[in-house]
Structure formats: C-alpha cells, structure tokens
Amino acid sequence: MPKLKLDDLKKIKEQVLKDTSLRTGGATAKVTVHMGTCGIASGARQVMDALMDEVSQSDRQDIAVTTSGCIGLCSEEPIVTVELLNEEAIRYHFVDPNKMRQIFKRHILEGEVQDEFVMAKGSEHSN
C-alpha cells in the first residue's frame, strides 16, 4: 500500500522551527480562494493550484493560504481575496492561474496591487 513518508515531515518541521526561531514569525499575508460551487465550476481549483505552486517556489513562510465559500457574486468567479498586514483587503475577480501568478509576484511579494483585476477594495463579509 502506498504510504506517506512521515519521517521527511519531521525533518521539515525541525528546519522550520530552526528558521523561525531567528524571526518573529506569524503570517503577514492571507490569500483566500473562494470555493463555492460557482467558483469551483469556474476554475477556482486551478487558481488554488497555481497559488500553492507559487508559494512552494517562494522562500516565504509567512503567507497563509486558505479557501472559503461562495460570497454571492457567482458571475464574478473565480474570486481571490488578498489581505496583507496593516493594509486593506483587495478582492480580485475573474482570476485564472496566470493572473494568480501575477497577483502573487506583484501584489503579495512586492506590494503592488494589480488594479486591472480588482473587483473591490476594503473588507467585505461573506455569508
């Protein structure tokens, strides 16, 4: 039966704990991919996949990746919300894997909001 190599995880944990002991730690960026039925049917999983790929290629351990449900704007999907520490939340619409990679590199890593993809700025609550 195929099995996960849990010993490798132990090594990752030890390395991460060693690295984070040198810094203050904690997430400074949170990226949420909205995964309602509408988002999934529009390509949200592929967007999430591109996001995880970018995170895994970066050296940043302070980025939290998360998913959440539909916010009622189904025709705008896939929707991604980026929250950087001490900055207003930015909600992007019609995101695809290429746009996600651009948002990751320019906005999340360099702080430059990608205005051409923005749907809304500021906090909005999803139901």
Partner: peptide
C-alpha cells in the same frame, strides 16, 4: 501529518512540496 508537523503551517513552502510529491507518488 499534523501530528508530525506539531504546529508548522500547512501553507509552508516545504510542506506544500512534500505533500504534492508524496500524494502524487502514492
């Protein structure tokens, strides 16, 4: 997985690489 990681984030770049590789192989 979480027991082994003892609080290390699942969004950590190395953890994502590990999970993807191991799940793909499995």
């Amino acid at each position: 997985i979480k027991d082994e990681l003892e609080g290390v984030s699942l969004s950590n770049p190395e953890v994502i690489k590990f999970l993807r590789k191991n799940l793909q192989e499995g």
